[in-house]
Design a protein around this nucleic acid. Structure first.
Lengths: 182, 182
DNA sequence: CATTTTGTTCAAAAAAACTTGAACAAAAGG
DNA sequence: CCTTTTGTTCAAGTTTTTTTGAACAAAATG
């Protein structure tokens, strides 16, 4: 009676979002935002995170109600970050996507794409500042500038040391620890 | 002849930016941006970072050519982050600001203000998802949801563990190491 | 008090970031 | 080839964030 097309589980859950899924998607939306990524990237990742089966771009568009452009760009960027990977289902032309769910991978991808480039640009900037210090007419200012340059170099070195540690630490216990107690 | 008002160093450098200072300010402008802070915060911090003497708000405004509003809000936010501290020069009504230059302090302030609140909101969100899982009609979906909730909880725990380490690691060798070689 | 100096607030303007969708390519099928 | 399906690109539109500046408060000065 009321239970009509209800047990269409594995293959039909694809069409609508469960409440909890919306909440997870929303969580990732906010998370993406605070990592400086567009909201839509968060939504897309969140959706894939929820699902067991790979989704194609058009399914992502429909489920999240976002445009082709956003879906395309979002999926590409997420793959670039290593947050999503794609497969081609046998005998189907569509590319389908799944979320990378290992925190270590997510973090290291993020650092590789976001932090590492900044560190490299940092080298160039420091070099540039060093050059400008040559121009400086006032001796006092130059001395001050050299000190600041040293401080910045120190910070740069520190950051370079920190990143590998972060990757390590997050790697530990990627799997859930055995549940003890109750 | 050519050296006229030239040696007005310590107290008069205040009026203009040296080239290297502009470069440092620009560096912090970009850095702020990639930490998700407004550019003006970066500029203000950068300026103070360059200077030995504390600067008042109107000096910041003039040197950076920014509005009263930006200067006021920027300085307040930076103080909140622990990136800047203020003093009142004896017999002067103006509040004057200096940059916190110890990386450890900067990082821990940033984490305290930005990361910690997110972790706390995370707890609430996880709880909410857990509740929504109760509503879920499809058994399969619920099971899937429980799994995802477990994954998210694991991530949350990991992040909670990571932050203290970051504060530690950055703390090491805050001072420049003794220069050996050459 | 009235005045001056210093600093905050917040609505409106400006700038930046994100999203959209239509036009365009690329590849598969027939 | 021509058509269909799938996916990319990017200019224009939308939304969000940041900055501005004028009005306002607070505190010191005389």
């Amino acid at each position: 009676m009321t239970s009509f097309t209800v047990t269409a589980s594995s293959l039909e859950q694809t069409r609508v979002l469960d409440e909890w899924e919306s909440a997870v998607i929303d969580l990732f939306l906010h998370a993406a935002n605070s990592f400086g990524l567009p909201k839509s990237y968060g939504q897309i990742y969140g959706l894939l995170f929820c699902r067991d089966e790979p989704l194609a771009m058009d399914e992502v568009m429909e489920l999240l109600q976002i445009s082709k452009g956003s879906a395309s760009q979002g999926l590409r960027a997420l793959r670039q970050l290593g947050a999503v990977s794609s497969t081609y289902a046998q005998g189907d032309r569509k590319e389908r996507f799944v979320a990378e769910i290992r925190l270590r991978k997510l973090v290291s991808g993020f650092l590789r794409e976001q932090a590492d480039p900044h560190l490299e640009k940092g080298v160039a900037r420091l070099k540039q500042i060093e050059e400008l210090l040559g121009n400086t007419s006032s001796e006092n200012s130059q001395i001050r500038g050299v000190r600041r340059h040293e401080v910045l170099s120190g910070w740069h070195r520190q950051m370079g040391r920190l990143l590998p540690w972060v990757k390590m630490i997050v790697g530990k216990s990627d799997r859930l620890p055995p549940k003890n107690k109750k």
